[in-house]
């Protein structure tokens, strides 16, 4: 069926093009986000990453004076690799040994230096049974 080019099609085509342009603009300006990795995968990588792991003690220091020091290991626990973490800024209430946390930062001289205030703890599992010290 021969149809005259409809403005609707033009509008949609232009909009799709505009969206793609905006998308490209964004990725070129802001980059593509951070890789989210487990402590065992950190190795000697020094770019900015998001680290998701299980808190292992001892937890020392003061997050508002000199920084909080603790270690992270993989959730699930096949790997025993530990990454030492230095963290400053606000600490969520649920932070403690045995919790799952997510932090942003990068490795410097063997210590993962987290961005201040980037720590997120996972809520204790909504309605799962209590587990002592285990993953929540």
């Amino acid at each position: 069926m021969a149809r005259k080019a409809s403005p609707a099609r033009l509008v949609i085509a232009l909009s799709v093009a505009a969206v793609l342009a905006v998308f490209l603009l964004y990725t070129s300006i802001a980059g593509g986000g951070n890789p989210s990795i487990a402590p065992s995968e950190l190795g000697t990588r020094t770019e900015k990453v998001q680290l998701a792991g299980l808190v292992v003690g001892p937890v020392r220091g003061d997050s508002h004076a000199g920084g909080l020091r603790f270690a992270l290991r993989d959730i699930g626990g096949k790997h025993r690799t530990r990454v030492n973490v230095l963290y400053a800024g606000s600490v969520p209430d649920l932070f403690k040994v045995g919790r799952h946390i997510v932090i942003d930062g990068r490795l410097r001289n063997g210590v993962f230096v987290a961005e201040p205030g980037s720590m997120i703890t996972k809520c204790p599992s909504k309605y799962a049974p209590k587990q002592d010290g285990g993953p929540a």
């Binding site: 964004y26 802001a30 593509g32 986000g33 951070n34 890789p35 989210s36 990795i37 998001q50």
Partner: peptide
């Protein structure tokens, strides 16, 4: 779904943070 897609393609999950969403909310 980006973490899942990037994991499938690059073998590593990449998380798009607040900046990504805030940018598009404005745009």
């Amino acid at each position: 779904v980006y973490p899942l897609i990037s994991e499938a393609v690059r073998g590593e999950a990449v998380v798009l943070g607040r900046a990504y969403y805030d940018f598009f909310l404005r745009i």
